[in-house]
Nucleic acid binder design. Sequence first.
DNA 1: CCTACCGATCGGTAGG
DNA 2: CCTACCGATCGGTAGG
Lengths: 202, 202
Amino acid sequence: MKEETITKGGRTRQAIEDAALILFLEHGYHATSMRQIADQAGLALGGIYNHFSNKEEIFSGIIMDKHPYKRVLPAILAAEGETAEDFIRSAASALVSELGNQPDFIKLMFIEIIEFNGKHASLMLREIGPKLLPVFERLVKVRKNLRKIHPAVLMRSFIGMFFSFYVTELFIADTPLKKVMPKDSFDLFVDIYLHGILKPEE
Amino acid sequence: MKEETITKGGRTRQAIEDAALILFLEHGYHATSMRQIADQAGLALGGIYNHFSNKEEIFSGIIMDKHPYKRVLPAILAAEGETAEDFIRSAASALVSELGNQPDFIKLMFIEIIEFNGKHASLMLREIGPKLLPVFERLVKVRKNLRKIHPAVLMRSFIGMFFSFYVTELFIADTPLKKVMPKDSFDLFVDIYLHGILKPEE
DNA sequence: CCTACCGATCGGTAGG
DNA sequence: CCTACCGATCGGTAGG
C-alpha cells in the first residue's frame, strides 16, 4: 500500500497490480482479461504494456509485492516467549494480524498452484524454508515442554494450521454451518494445536 | 470408474470426463481448451457437444462423478472404534486410503474456489454437512476421553487436518524440504491432532 | 499512454 | 428415425 516511489509510473504500476489482484481473486487468472485489468486500473489496454511485458508478469509482480510471505517470515522470526506455548501463541497471533481475517489471500496461492503448477511458490519456499526451519529446530532444542516432534514436521504442521483454518473458512463462508461455528474458531484451532505439540502439564 | 451403463454413449461421456479431469488438474480450467479435451478423449471437438452442452457442464459432471466427497462421507460414517482415538484413527486412515497419497484431488477444490467462487462446493457442504456434523456431535457426547471441544470445531479441524497435510504436500513437492520431511508425515499429523483433542492419559 | 490493429485461438455450432 | 461423430466455420476475444 505504501510506496517509496512517488513517480507517476510507479503509481500506475501499483494501480495495475491493485486492479489485477481484485480481478484475479474474483475470477481467477485466465478468466481475467487484460482489457478488464486496464478498465479497472483506469487506462487503455496498450498502456499496461508500458509497465508489464505480459500478463504473467503482472501476476509475478503481485506475488512479489502482495504475497503474505514477505510479512509472514518476519512475523514468525520476531515471535518470542518464555515457553513453547508462548512462542507459538505469539507467532500465531502475529501471523493472523498480518494476514487479516479475510481468507482471500490464500486464493493467490491456489491460483499459483493451479495455473502455474506452484512455480513461484516453489521458488518462495526455497527462499524462506532455510530461514524458517532453523527457528523450529531451535524451538525443538530449547523448549523442554515440547513433545518430541521432528522440526520439519513442527514447521509444516504450524503452517498447515493456517491452511486448515483458512481453507475451511472459505468453504463454510456461504453455508448454514457459518452460524453453528463459534466466532473464535481460530483461537480454538491454536488451542488444539498447542495441546497437540505440548507435553501435558500435570 | 465402474459403470452400469455399457452403452457407447456412456463410455464416451466417461472418456471426456477422464480427459478433462487430467487437463484441468494440469493446467486449470480456463487454460484447458475444448480442443485439448477432445484430443485427449480421442474424438473430434464437435463430438463433445453430443454429451455436454458446454464446458462448464463437463466440470460439473466431474465434480459430481469424481469428487472425493462421495467417498469421504461414507468412509467417515463407517469409521468405528472403542475410544475417540480409535475412531479418529479409523476415520483418518479410511480417508487417506480413499483419497490416495496424491494431493491432486485437492486441486479440484481449488479450481472450484477460484473459477467458480465455490459455487459447487457450497452446495456440496450443504448436502454433507448435516450428515457429518451429527457424527462429531455423537463423538463429543459419548467419548469421555475427549477434551471439551465444540462439535463443529471438532469436525472442521478434522477436515482441516487433511487440507493442512495435502496443501503443504503440494508446496513441498519440488523443494529440498521434501528430503528433510519424514516419510510418515501424515501419521505424525494425525498424532499431533490426537494429542490436541484428547485428554492426557496419565 | 492511446488508437488501431495483428496472428491465433477461444467456445460453440452449422449441415451432412 | 436415432446415436455418434465429422470437417469446416461461426462470432468474439486472447495476448501482444
